[in-house]
């Protein structure tokens, strides 16, 4: 991960998302898709970022006529 101060806000956002996701305490037995769905059902997260679900992002972008920002990290 790059480490300059320029990137800290970006890193912070990812950390915040990670913490929020971790706080969900998802059952260990959930499949990746079930985990995604549960994370994205949390409206306080889904209001800002969609977690690992490009089709969901595409659907929302069509519905709201917005462009997509897809971040690979």
């Amino acid at each position: 991960m790059p480490s300059t101060h320029h990137l800290r806000p970006i890193a912070f956002s990812s950390l915040a998302l990670l913490l929020a996701v971790s706080a969900l305490r998802l059952p260990a037995g959930d499949s990746p898709q079930e985990k995604r769905d549960k994370i994205n059902d949390r409206t306080e997260i889904a209001a800002t970022w969609i977690y690992d679900d490009l089709p969901a992002a595409v659907a929302r972008a069509k519905r709201e006529n917005k462009p997509i920002l897809a971040v690979f990290r």
Binding site: Y51, L54, P67, I68, L69, R73
Partner: peptide, 9 residues
């Protein structure tokens, strides 16, 4: 104004 999605892998 964007729909933001993070792809993890």
């Amino acid at each position: 104004d964007f729909v933001c999605v993070r792809i993890i892998q």
